[in-house]
């Protein structure tokens, strides 16, 4: 690369990076300022953070929404990883014609838009009394074709001689999965964890459908509710957005490297 071209590349990447980060920077700035100052276009951190925190917690049930979001997302991530990794492993390691056919049918479920299943699911869940419950939140998306496919791909690289040796040692099939496969597939699990936690935390349509009780709402629902009034207090609103964003950003930074590795496995 010549110097001129290199400079252009850096300039372009810098501009794109700034555009990518700026709205998030502005969100943090707004969360620490009074609404009037935000409307005046301030771009520096203010001193109204504690004031905004007080007002937000006084007007909205943030603790409940935050607690719910953590509860739903953590339970969902745990069960989803368990169910999908066992299935992906089963599809790959014990594959035969019948199982391959089942897998291709399952992949079709990826194409089913959520709007098409939402109404029957709502009717099913309301007659099973699952509205406003954790189980109701997680059931529709515990098992996803995407995660099964990811674990199936990664099981492909699991050496079969390890399995043979383990079988000779008298380990059961489940023990082989639990003691051999699980520890060696850390990066796939980390990627799956990132994807599942984020999509559970961020999900909005399904909770909006089934969580009618104020005590069951999630953090994104609380943020959305804040915008419904006639007068918007930008400081408080952006603080709520910040609170809603921090957990996913932390997960993202903790697992970023393994996420990229895991995706590489899925794309191969």
């Amino acid at each position: 690369m010549t110097k001129g071209k290199k400079f252009l590349a850096y300039a372009f990447l810098t501009v794109v990076s700034v555009i990518s980060v700026f709205p998030l920077y502005w969100m943090m700035v707004a969360a620490t300022n009074k609404s009037v100052d935000v409307s005046r276009g301030t771009l520096i951190f203010g001193t109204a953070l504690f004031d905004n925190v007080k007002k937000l917690f006084a007007s909205q049930n943030v603790a409940t929404a935050l607690g719910n979001s953590f509860k739903y997302s953590i339970i969902m991530t745990f069960i989803s990883l368990l169910v999908c990794s066992i299935a992906g492993y089963g599809f790959e390691v014990f594959h035969d014609k019948a199982k391959d056919r089942v897998m291709s049918v399952i992949l079709l479920a990826m194409m089913v838009p959520f709007a098409a299943t939402m109404i029957p699911l709502y009717r099913m869940f309301s007659s099973a009394r699952l509205l406003n419950s954790t189980l109701g939140f997680i059931l529709p998306t515990i098992s996803t074709p995407f995660l099964i496919m990811m674990f199936r791909q990664s099981a492909r690289s699991f050496p079969s001689d390890i399995m043979e040796a383990a079988r000779l040692d008298g380990l059961s099939e489940f023990q082989i999965f639990y003691r051999m496969f699980l520890p060696t597939m850390r990066s796939t699990y980390a990627a799956a964890m990132t994807i599942t936690f984020m999509s559970a935390w961020n999900s909005y349509l399904w909770p909006k459908v089934i969580m009618s009780d104020a005590n069951s709402i999630t953090m994104p629902m609380l943020v959305a509710n804040l915008t419904e009034g006639y007068v918007t207090d930008y400081g408080i609103l952006m603080l709520a957005v910040l609170v809603c964003t921090i957990p996913t950003v932390i997960v993202f930074f903790l697992l970023q490297r393994s996420f990229a590795e895991g995706i590489t496995g899925a794309v191969k």
Binding site: V16, S17, V18, S20, V21, P23, L24, M27, M198, W201, N202, Y204, P220, M221, V223, A224, V241, C244, T245, T248, V249, V251, F252, Q256
Partner: peptide
């Protein structure tokens, strides 16, 4: 930096 927007929820 470019991947960071993906960490924000759709509502946010």
């Amino acid at each position: 930096a470019i991947f960071l927007p993906c960490a924000t929820s759709l509502v946010s």
